[in-house]
Nucleic acid binder design. Structure first.
Lengths: 223, 223
DNA sequence: GTCTATATCCTGATAGAC
DNA sequence: GTCTATCAGGATATAGAC
């Protein structure tokens, strides 16, 4: 009985989240308003406070769910690591997944990457999923390095920083200069292969440029 | 007499702009409010409408002035081109100037790079300065290419896109992950030299990695 | 659990007196 | 040019009835 009530409650919470994302998608992250969310759900604004303690708490939830979702999408490419995936494949896959998701979830990405809402910043708990993701990236880079696919003298943390700079740069340019473009159409997203190639020229173990194909993929290197 | 009135008016406009930037710096770009601006100036809100037709018009002005200011800062490094500057020096200078300015003007940068204010997007006229800057970048890259410092087969437009991705990426990561850090302290800003090196590995005319010093600067190449 | 009602405050913007 | 007065509406949040 209490289970049923719990389930119903969770369902309503999910509906609030979905509606909030809908509003943000139309108005930008800073345009989120509880009144508009309530109106679309067919309830009154105060009822929302039964599910979220404040607007900030709702933002935290949207933030955390976004990073969780991205993390879940990244799973497969990290799994491919144990199957012996190469560096270029992994990185291109990773960046494309990340950038693609951000372009498909503009407003939520805004909330996750920047600080668009006056007075709000993510609570430490909400950060957890984001931290987990950067740790997974570091782990993957360390794995590649151990397998001899990245320079043994490169700093894993630095490589991680560079990777996040590249993804944030593409997302930022794409969202503000060609809003609405998807992964396949964007001129900046189209540079992802090139950026991966640049990264591997700098950090890849093989020093010969010939190891790299123009699209950024990399010849398989026998372990 | 009319000149004096004009001058006084311009002075007030400048004060509105300065105050608006002050407010934005404290609250984020989306936190800009005309009431707060008026209060700090010691006037009433309606008086502002004598100088700006709307909040959007004020935002346009802030946007345009930001790009103008950055453009003016870039001038010297572009001038160095005719004096025979090399690619690494120019690019590092350029990126550092840009990123440094953005970190010192967080909120204005927010306005210029993203779309933080619901319902506002820059008017075409406000864009002019931004366009001018990307054209200056393309011009500089073409100059370097003509002088044999960049691969002759590289696409100038593409190189320009990559450069803007790098700067936007550093700015984005720096502003959201280490807010408050200046150019010299930021961990992401600290990668600028590395990023320039990566760029030149990919697009530089000299193919040997030995041509590049670790900090991203490049040996002078006699024309 | 959801409602009505309300508190409190802020928003951008306009009309018209001085 | 700047003001007062005001519009018309929005925001988040709380108290207490049903």
């Amino acid at each position: 009985m209490s289970d049923r009530r719990q389930a119903r409650r969770q369902q309503t919470i999910d509906e609030v989240v979905a509606t909030a994302l809908e509003v943000m998608a139309e108005t930008g992250a800073a345009g989120l308003s509880l009144g508009e969310v309530a109106k679309r759900m067919g309830i009154r604004t105060p009822s929302l406070y039964g599910y979220f303690a404040s607007k900030a708490a709702l933002c935290d939830e949207l933030f955390a769910r976004g990073w969780q979702e991205v993390g879940a999408l990244m799973g497969p490419s990290y799994d491919a690591l144990s199957a012996g995936a190469d560096a270029a494949g992994l990185l291109l896959d990773n960046l494309s997944t990340f950038v693609g998701w951000a372009l498909d979830h503009r407003a939520q990405a805004e909330l996750m990457f920047w600080r668009p809402i006056p007075g709000w910043e993510p609570a430490p708990e909400a950060y957890a999923a984001a931290v987990q993701l950067t740790e997974a990236l570091s782990g993957a880079l360390a794995n590649l390095q151990l397998r001899g696919l990245l320079r043994p003298d490169a700093d894993v943390e630095e490589m991680g920083r560079v990777i996040t700079v590249l993804s944030a740069g593409v997302i930022s340019q794409q969202l503000s200069n060609e809003p609405g473009a998807r992964l396949a159409e964007g001129r900046f997203a189209g540079e992802l292969g090139r950026l991966v190639a640049m990264f591997l020229h700098e950090f890849g173990a093989g020093k010969k440029a010939a190891d790299l194909r123009p699209d950024g993929s990399r010849k398989r290197v026998r372990r």
